[in-house]
Simulated scan of single mutants.
Amino acid sequence: MAFFRIESENHLQPIAATTFSDLGMKERQDLQALLRDNPKTIGTDLLVFAEEFSNWQDSSRRVDLLALDRNSNLVVIELKRIEEGGHMELQALRYAAMLSTVDFPQVREAYEKLLANPAVAAKRGITAHDAEQQLLDFLGAVTASEVNISSTPRIILMAPSFSKEMTTTVLWLNEREVDIRCVSVQPYEIDGKRFLEVEQVIPLPSSADYMVQKKAKEAKAEKQAVDQKRRSRSLPTLVEAKVLNPGDVLELIRLPRGILKDVPQDARYADLIDETRVKWHFNGKEYSLTSLCAAICAQFAPEVLPVTYAFAGPDNWAMAGEKIWLSELARSLELSPLELPNLG
Results as ranks from 00 to 15, higher is better:
Ser8Gly: 04
Ser21Gln: 13
Lys26Gln: 15
Asp30Ser: 07
Asp30Gln: 12
Leu34His: 11
Lys40Glu: 15
Val63Met: 05
Leu65Phe: 01
Val76Ala: 01
Val76Ile: 03
Glu78Pro: 09
Leu79Phe: 00
Lys80Ser: 12
Arg81Phe: 03
Ile82Asp: 15
Leu90Tyr: 14
Arg94Glu: 14
Tyr95Leu: 11
Ser100Thr: 01
Thr101Pro: 06
Phe104Asp: 05
Ala116Trp: 08
Pro118Ala: 09
Arg124Asp: 11
Ile126Tyr: 03
Leu135Cys: 08
Asp137Pro: 07
Val142Glu: 14
Thr143Ile: 00
Asn148Cys: 10
Pro153Asn: 05
Ile155Phe: 00
Ser161Glu: 02
Met166Asn: 04
Thr167Arg: 13
Thr168Arg: 08
Thr169Glu: 14
Leu171Met: 10
Asn174Ala: 10
Val178Ser: 12
Ile180Trp: 07
Ser184Gly: 10
Lys193Ile: 06
Glu197Ile: 09
Glu199Ser: 13
Pro203Asp: 02
Ser207Thr: 14
Ala216Met: 14
Ala219Ser: 15
Arg233Pro: 01
Val239Gly: 09
Val239Tyr: 09
Val243Phe: 01
Pro246Gly: 01
Pro246Lys: 05
Leu252Gly: 03
Gln265Ala: 14
Tyr269Gln: 00
Leu272Asp: 09
Arg277Tyr: 12
Val278Ala: 03
Lys279Tyr: 06
Phe282Ala: 15
Lys285Ile: 10
Lys285Asp: 13
Thr290Ala: 01
Ile296Gln: 00
Leu305Ser: 11
Phe311Arg: 11
Asn316Cys: 15
Ala320Gly: 03
Lys323Ser: 14
Trp325Ile: 05
Leu326Glu: 13
Glu334Gly: 02
Ser336Thr: 14
Glu339Leu: 04
